[in-house]
């Protein structure tokens, strides 16, 4: 009798724990949107120019910085991570080198992003003399994102059935031809999903960027060697310096806009995954 009663109480507690966990999501998203979505969706705000001292500034250059940064970062890290994943999944035979590379990737992915920020400051901003700019931030983030991109690419490469490879190789195709024309195309959905997810991470990243891209700008950056201010970094800067009188409004709006962008990117990633899975199921 007693055991069933304990079981019922435990079940109740697990329901509560599960509900609290999703509740946290709803409270955070609800609170941020309730505060800022109204401001964020005003064209004068998301298409406006930031103010350094006066009120009424917008965040357009920051949004552009975030997107620009995501593109640059992926341009650097996507080929590298894909190459590394192809090497690990298709070429290496699971020896010492593979294990070592995987250990490095695991270590890299467990480093705090502030450490990447320090590294980026030391090497790109100061040592190479690029200063605070998009390209310094992009290289820093490329390294930060490399392990996750690599892992997701490797997993989707490995999910391609062995028979595909065997069929291609038995037709006389070389290994590289097999990889390029058979394995990579069939693992594309997974690779695309992983890439889109990493766009979300890049947009949300701030600690690795405060010392590498810059924190405040008024003009839209065109040249990658120009100082920039990704939205996430600028939100932190605006609330911490509180130079404009309406900084609370700006941060509320900026945070809501950032959250919206990140959530949309995540939903897109999920949709892509689903879309391809459905198509695969039909064919």
């Amino acid at each position: 009798m007693k055991a069933t009663r304990v079981d019922r109480i435990a079940t109740f507690f697990f329901w509560i724990l599960g509900m609290i966990s999703v509740g946290i999501l709803f409270i955070i998203v609800g609170e941020i949107f309730a505060r800022g979505l109204f401001i964020a969706l005003k064209p004068s705000f998301f298409l406006g120019k930031p103010e350094a001292m006066k009120e009424g500034g917008g965040i357009l250059p920051m949004i552009v910085s975030s997107i620009y940064l995501a593109v640059l970062t992926l341009l650097i890290s996507l080929p590298l991570s894909l190459g590394a994943a192809i090497y690990l999944a298709e070429y290496s035979r699971g020896g010492k080198i593979t294990r070592f590379i995987r250990f490095c990737a695991d270590s890299l992915s467990s480093l705090p992003s502030i450490v990447f920020g320090l590294f980026g400051l030391a090497i790109f901003v100061v040592r190479l003399g690029w200063g605070y700019c998009l390209i310094s931030g992009a290289f820093t983030l490329a390294l930060l994102n490399l392990p996750t991109l690599m892992r997701s690419a490797e997993e989707s490469l490995k999910s391609v059935p062995k028979t595909y490879r065997e069929a291609s190789l038995s037709l006389g195709a070389s290994r590289w031809t097999t990889v390029r024309q058979v394995v990579v195309p069939s693992s594309l959905p997974g690779i695309i999903t992983g890439t889109v997810l990493s766009i979300g991470r890049i947009m949300g990243e701030s600690a690795a960027l405060i010392f590498t891209t810059g924190t405040f700008i008024r003009k839209i950056p065109l040249n990658p060697f120009q100082t920039a201010a990704p939205l996430a970094v600028n939100i932190w800067y605006t609330q911490s310096e509180a130079l404009v009188p309406d900084y609370r409004n700006i941060v509320n709006g900026g945070a809501a806009f950032l959250l919206l962008m990140v959530l949309v990117v995540n939903l897109v990633a999920r949709y892509i995954g689903k879309f391809y899975r459905r198509r695969k199921g039909l064919s």
């Binding site: 599960g18 966990s21 946290i24 999501l25 955070i28 949300g204 996430a232 939100i235 932190w236 959530l263």
Partner: peptide
Amino acid sequence: IAPPKIGTAIGRGIELIASIPSVVIGWF
């Protein structure tokens, strides 16, 4: 414990928490 549908929904919700930028959580 959860019925499969609720379980998946909660799992997705928790995954989404991971995607919230840290400055947004900080501001919250």
